[in-house]
Design a protein around this nucleic acid. Sequence first.
DNA 1: GGCCAGGTGTAAA
DNA 2: TTTACACATGGC
Length: 220
Amino acid sequence: MDQLKDFLLEIYNLLYSEYGPQGWWPADNWFEVIVGAVLTQNTSWKNVEKAIQNLKLNNLLEPERLYKLSEQELAQFIRPAGFYNLKAKRLKNLIELLRKYDFDFKKTAAQIKREELLSVNGVGKETADSILLYAFDKPIFVVDNYTRRLLQRLEVVCGEADYEEIQSLFHGISSDLQCYKEYHALIVRHVKQICLKNKPKCGDCCIGMFCKYSILSTKN
DNA sequence: GGCCAGGTGTAAA
DNA sequence: TTTACACATGGC
């Protein structure tokens, strides 16, 4: 297990050396992180940016403002992010939770629990953990499909590995908040970048020496 | 024109 | 418990 820890730390160092700090989450404040976390569900960040911009230009990117806005109106502002009716509902659900804490950052950060976020319809594990890590600075690692794919290619986990299993691997290597924020961002950056190449091969990237299979390969 | 993107919930098998 | 599908826009 200590070996695995060292291995994951080495991967982190290689990625960090290659790409440098990623500055995640790209948002001006905690509430923008939360809105972005919902809007980015199965959606490219480019489209999320347009939706966020719409809200900003209309002075709506504040919890109280969105609380007062109707679901139908909200949906129109976030259209570019896709699934806009669904996401308007999900944002409303989340804002209803935030209202319990009087839309107050400190109060929410001090009291909010993962289970509470997960109980909100439209908030799954990845969204909940993104909010906890990037909006509220909780040392909780965010697992996404990029993470799963990368660990599969590195033969650290198999395809059936569940969310918490993968998460615990990262919780085992460090409890450092910045490391969690950076590692997740670096994984996203790396896998995206590699997949953009026409024919990525093994050994083709900064961690290639550890990959038996191409990142695009479906082989486990 | 087809495929995919920083997922999640629901319903049927 | 697993699988299929809906949700929708915009970039390449």
